[in-house]
Computed example of a mutant assay.
Amino acid sequence: MARKMSNDELYKLLRQMSNDELYKLLRQDAFDLREKAKTLFREAQDAQRCRNHELCKKLKKQAHSKLTEAQQWQKVAAEIIFNITNAKNNKFVIDLHGLHTSEAVGYVSQRLVQLNESNDTAQPLLVITGRGIHSRLGPKLPTAIKDFCDENGYYYKEGKPGTILVYITTRFSKSLKSHFEEYEEPLELKWVF
C-alpha cells in the first residue's frame, strides 16, 4: 500500500524535477481536459447536424465544464511552477520559465504592484523571460512583458539575452523615458539568487 505524501514532501520532489519534466507533469491534466472538451464539442456538432438538440445541449454543457476544469488546472499548475522556479529568488528577481504568456504578465504585474505599494523602488525588477528556445513558436514572453510595460508606463531595458530590467519608480513620463534613452551604456547585471 502506497504511503500518502505530505505537501512538503511533494514540493521537495517537484523541485528535484527538470523544468521540462515539471511542466509536462503539471500541464498534462489540463491538456487532457481540453482535448476531451474538443471531442465533446465535435460530438455536439454531430448531434446538431442530426437534429438531436437535447443531446447537443448536454454535450456542450459537458464540454464547457471540461474547459472550466482545464482552466482551474492551468491556474494550479502555474502557481506551483512559479513558486518552485522562484523559491530562491529575492523580491527583485522574477523567473517566468514554464509560464504561459498571460500567466507571466499577471505575475509581473502583481510583483510590480507589491513593490510599488511597499515603496521598494530602489532597484529594478529583473524579469527572466528566457530566450524561448523551448517554445514551439519562438520567444513570446519578452514581447508580452515589453508590451505590458509600454501599456502601463513602466520603463524597461533589455539585459542579457532572456532578461528584462523593469524600473519600478512608478510610471516614467515619456520625457523622462527619452532622457534615459540618451544614455545607452551596456548593462552589468548582478544576479542575485
Results as ranks from 00 to 15, higher is better:
149 C>H: 11
164 I>R: 07
109 S>G: 13
164 I>A: 09
2 A>K: 03
85 T>S: 02
156 Y>Q: 04
1 M>L: 02
136 R>P: 10
59 L>M: 08
159 G>Q: 02
114 Q>D: 08
128 I>R: 10
19 N>T: 00
87 A>M: 04
187 L>A: 03
123 Q>T: 09
100 H>D: 00
80 I>Y: 06
61 K>L: 02
173 S>W: 01
12 K>T: 10
174 K>C: 01
129 T>M: 11
146 K>R: 13
113 V>L: 09
176 L>W: 09
60 K>L: 08
126 L>N: 08
31 F>P: 00
105 V>P: 12
193 F>M: 09
181 E>S: 14
60 K>Q: 12
130 G>T: 03
68 T>Q: 13
149 C>A: 14
98 G>D: 04
12 K>C: 04
177 K>C: 06
36 K>D: 15
149 C>K: 08
137 L>T: 10
51 R>S: 10
71 Q>P: 00
27 R>N: 15
4 K>S: 02
177 K>G: 03
93 V>E: 06
54 E>F: 05
150 D>N: 15
36 K>M: 15
181 E>F: 03
94 I>K: 04
104 A>F: 07
47 A>I: 05
68 T>C: 10
11 Y>W: 14
89 N>I: 02
89 N>C: 11
24 K>V: 13
123 Q>C: 04
6 S>R: 10
84 I>W: 09
84 I>T: 06
179 H>I: 05
1 M>T: 10
37 A>P: 07
77 A>M: 07
26 L>E: 05
81 I>L: 12
53 H>I: 08
121 T>F: 13
175 S>N: 03
183 Y>L: 07
180 F>D: 01
133 I>Q: 11
150 D>E: 14
116 N>M: 08
166 V>D: 08
54 E>T: 06
3 R>Y: 13
144 A>G: 10
52 N>L: 02
186 P>M: 01
69 E>R: 15
122 A>F: 11
157 K>H: 00
110 Q>S: 14
133 I>F: 14
99 L>G: 14
39 T>P: 01
95 D>R: 10
22 L>M: 05
124 P>T: 07
80 I>F: 06
49 R>H: 09
22 L>Y: 02
184 E>T: 05
28 Q>F: 09
108 V>Y: 04
50 C>V: 00
150 D>V: 10
165 L>Q: 14
1 M>V: 12
146 K>P: 00
108 V>L: 07
